[in-house]
Design a protein around this nucleic acid. Structure first.
Length: 207
DNA sequence: ACGAGGATGCTCT
DNA sequence: GAGCATCCTCGTG
């Protein structure tokens, strides 16, 4: 497959949970050092405005008072289809895409991808790993493998520095499963994690 | 195979 | 000062 179809703002300007599910099987693309790095998205999570685990949730009272959102989560209230990238645990950049219409907060975290193009460059960006799947089977791992960091925070995907393309329609549809989200302590009962049941690149996988 | 613990810096209270 | 949307190493069995 060499042809990638850009997913525009209309794709992302929808219900966050639906976008999270629909992103399974789509392609995350970054043109880096004259090479195309491509990963097939196999795991996502939805974060919504009325969601205690969401960065934008703490701004709820502010919104209700009609105040403009501030801080890192402000971007989640903006237009859909923008990169929302933040540092967690002081070390790892996590890549999200904003969702919903302007004024409504939402984002989808990309938690794992299967390498598709640029494997040699990805391996050079993850020099210590022993198992191939450790290249990109986690949200912090995939940003390392694909050279994604704070430089791209706030960029519209339409700039096509980092962007997302539709899944391969000739391929078999992925079997999508759900679970509670990983690594959070609030709203742990929401099944807003989606993953391709047959992928070897799921985070928190057995063996 | 599995679990505990350390690294490390930003955001919010 | 606490709490993280994590990853890696090094114990133990």
């Amino acid at each position: 497959m060499t042809k990638y179809t850009f997913l525009d703002e209309n794709f992302f300007s929808r219900n966050t949970v639906n976008v999270a599910e629909d992103l399974i099987g789509c392609y995350l693309i970054h043109y880096y050092r004259k090479q195309r790095l491509v990963g097939r998205i196999v795991e996502t999570e939805a974060y919504c405005q009325d969601d205690p685990a969401c960065h934008a949730y703490t701004n709820k009272s502010r919104i209700e008072k009609g105040l403009t959102p501030k801080g890192r989560s402000a971007l989640m209230f903006g237009p859909a289809g923008h990169a929302y990238i933040y540092l967690n645990y002081g070390m790892y950049w996590l890549f999200n895409v904003t969702t919903e219409k302007s004024g409504q907060a939402g984002a989808v975290l990309v938690r794992a991808v299967e390498p598709v193009e640029g494997l040699a460059l990805m391996r050079s960006l993850r020099p210590k790993i022993k198992r191939e799947r450790d290249l990109s089977n986690g949200p912090g791992k995939l940003t390392l493998a694909m050279a994604i960091n704070q430089r791209f925070h706030g960029d519209p995907l339409s700039k096509k520095t980092i962007w997302i393309a539709a899944g391969d329609k000739t391929a078999k549809r992925p079997q999508i499963k759900t679970s509670p989200r990983i690594g959070i302590s609030k709203a742990t009962d929401y099944e807003w994690r989606f993953y391709d049941a047959h992928s070897d690149y799921i985070s928190k996988n057995k063996s």
